[in-house]
């Protein structure tokens, strides 16, 4: 296979990484943007989504698409419920203090991780893809499921963008993001907005995880890389910026795919981390960061 097709293959792999990363990072970015909470447990919501996807899909007999569809529906809802509970029991009681919530979500990370180890075990387990279609290109065949993951991410990002910019719910979320106190003075129940955003952020991570488990296997430690990469993405893109998150996720995902294929995955992570350092030095608010109060 020549360089061109090889590069195309690497780019497609990078786009799959970018798709999953966009959804995961979008959740983290929303939570930080609106609530000013750095959710260190975000990767564990991703892991929980994947583990639940395995549990739900294996509970269904018959065609894999039935179990997968059930997982895609139920897993994000359960993870959203867990996030709501964490928000109510922990973050709200800390009054969303930025420093205290970092420590609290580190604790949450270990609780969720150890619960997964206890009840799910240390093994990595596969989830069957809902369909096995091979798209034939002139140079190679490519997984139809992976292309579907890219399409699903695009649809979800557009849906999130429409909700944020064209609906009253989105307007309320943006107003809360820009000025919590004034939002309250105009009848916005900030606590409820925070609870909803925290759950939505976790659900986006869970959806990303359900989409990725037919490609990777579900494992109780699988939340670490998505967390690191999500932080890289939101710092480069600008905390709380939807546009920045998408651009940075595509940039990091593509470079990760291409560099991993041509050189090594470690070099890809090193370069991404270096890019974060450069952004922090020369443009601390990120590429598309917005001023907030």
């Amino acid at each position: 296979m020549g360089f061109g097709p090889y590069f195309l293959l690497a780019s497609l792999e990078g786009l799959v990484t970018a798709a999953v990363l966009t959804l995961t990072a979008l959740g983290l970015s929303l939570v930080f943007g609106v609530m000013r909470v750095v959710n260190v447990a975000h990767g564990e919501f991703f892991m929980l989504g994947a583990v639940l996807a395995w549990a739900i899909s294996t509970a269904f007999a018959g065609h894999p698409s039935i179990g997968f569809a059930a997982a895609l529906l139920v897993s994000p809802l359960v993870v959203g419920g867990v996030a709501l509970l964490a928000e109510r029991l922990v973050l709200r009681r800390l009054n969303y203090d930025p420093e205290a919530t970092i420590v609290a979500t580190i604790g949450l990370l270990y609780i969720v991780q150890q619960l997964a180890l206890t009840f799910y075990g240390p093994d990595a387990r596969p989830v069957q893809a809902p369909f096995n279609i091979r798209v034939t290109l002139p140079w190679f065949g490519y997984s139809g499921y992976k292309l579907a993951v890219i399409a699903a991410a695009i649809v979800l990002v557009i849906a999130t963008w429409l909700v944020l910019t064209r609906t009253k719910v989105g307007l309320v979320m943006r107003a809360t993001q820009y000025d919590r106190e004034t939002a309250q003075a105009f009848g916005i129940p900030v606590d409820r907005v925070y609870a909803g955003v925290f759950a939505l952020g976790a659900m986006l991570a869970a959806i990303a995880a359900v989409l990725v488990v037919p490609i990777q296997q579900a494992h109780y430690l699988m939340g670490r890389d998505p967390l690191l990469l999500s932080f890289i993405v939101v710092i480069i893109g600008g905390l709380g910026s939807l546009r920045g998150t998408v651009v940075a996720a595509v940039l990091i995902g593509l470079s990760d795919g291409i560099i991993s294929v041509f050189f090594s995955p470690t070099l890809a992570k090193m370069l991404a981390t270096l890019l974060v350092a450069l952004v922090l030095v020369f443009r601390p608010q990120g590429l598309f960061g917005a001023a907030t109060r």
């Binding site: 307007l171 943006r174 107003a175 000025d179 106190e181 105009f186 001023a291 109060r293």
Partner: peptide, 14 residues
């Protein structure tokens, strides 16, 4: 204390 990133119409909508 306007929501300075929002438009005039959006501030009024709030």
């Amino acid at each position: 204390r306007l929501f300075s990133e929002l438009t005039v119409a959006e501030n009024i909508e709030i």
